[in-house]
């Protein structure tokens, strides 16, 4: 590898993602690992693997931005920026016409509204609760004893509009059991679980018009989630090339931009 690289590391509550780009905005390598207990260690591990995939070494790193829940734990980062700004930046690069971003992560879900200039106009994060997040899905899958992959596959065969009404993880679990007892087909109940998340996300959105980009681990792995969101929004959504890496990609882009404008970069941004 010759030439500088720019690194974005997104330490989420469930997964840590790393993206390495060159100075022409091209992705050279990326990697995702489970965040586990030690955020610094998972950031390190995601970085090593992404650098290896890029054919780059640590000496090639010109600038690094960390983001996500554990963003303060990344020693190598020059700065940290919130996941809200990083997702906005990443998705905007992939698709400039996007006006709404929905990111469904492990423990939080966020929606970001962009204005015509691509600036953040508004954003919302879910309240302190698992409703509408990956945790909601995982806990119901665990309660049913069925792997999430299987629930997704089952849901995609459903032809009925069942909705699980509860947002609350505990109540939704009980509702699912009641529906099973009531003899509802498994595929319909499975699809209903995704619709519950989609409806929670819908009400978080300050506006519904314009192209909607969807990101995060849940849409990356569950086609039924994309389907439920498209039903709720009554339109096709934009699924970027690496939905789970949107935050890390945005962080890498900001690292590149900050290094170009060094000296005039936003002074409020905390140095890592």
């Amino acid at each position: 590898m010759s030439g500088p690289v720019f690194v974005g590391i997104d330490v989420g509550s469930s997964a840590t993602k790393c993206v390495v780009i060159d100075d022409r905005f091209s992705v050279l390598g990326s990697h995702v690992v489970a965040s586990g207990f030690d955020y610094a260690e998972s950031a390190e591990s995601a970085l090593s693997r992404a650098l290896a995939e890029s054919g780059a070494s640590r000496n090639d790193i010109a600038s690094c931005v960390s983001t996500g829940y554990g963003r303060q734990h990344v020693d190598i980062a020059d700065r940290n920026v919130t996941e809200i700004s990083c997702h906005a930046r990443g998705v905007r690069e992939w698709s400039p016409e996007v006006r709404n971003i929905i990111d469904i992560g492990g423990q939080d879900t966020k929606v970001i509204r962009l204005n015509e200039r691509g600036q953040m106009a508004d954003y919302r994060m879910n309240a302190k609760c698992a409703a509408g997040t990956g945790t909601f899905l995982e806990s119901i899958a665990a309660r049913l004893g069925v792997p999430l992959k299987e629930i997704d596959a089952l849901a995609m065969t459903s032809t009925c509009g069942t909705v699980v009404n509860s947002y609350c993880t505990v109540f939704a679990g009980t509702e699912v059991i009641e529906r099973i007892k009531g003899g509802q087909p498994r595929e319909d109940i499975s699809m209903g679980i995704f619709r519950s998340i989609a409806s929670r996300v819908f009400e978080m959105m300050p506006a519904h018009d314009g192209v909607c980009g969807v990101t995060g681990g849940v849409v990356a792995h569950c086609r039924a989630m994309v389907r439920a969101l498209e039903e709720a929004l009554d339109t096709m959504v934009y699924l970027p090339p690496q939905p789970q890496h949107a935050g890390a990609f945005g962080a890498a882009l900001l690292a590149l931009e900050f290094s170009k404008t060094e000296g005039s970069q936003p002074s409020h941004v905390a140095r890592g």
């Binding site: 829940y69 920026v81 919130t82 996941e83 809200i84 700004s85 939080d108 600036q119 953040m120 954003y123 994060m125 302190k128 936003p266 409020h268 941004v269 905390a270």
Partner: peptide
């Protein structure tokens, strides 16, 4: 009823939004 991490992220993102403007 309060999450420190989530609130601090919200506030930081808000300041980033002001900076962007």
């Amino acid at each position: 009823f309060f999450s420190t991490a989530q609130t601090m992220t919200n506030i930081e993102a808000f300041i980033e939004q002001l900076e962007e403007r």
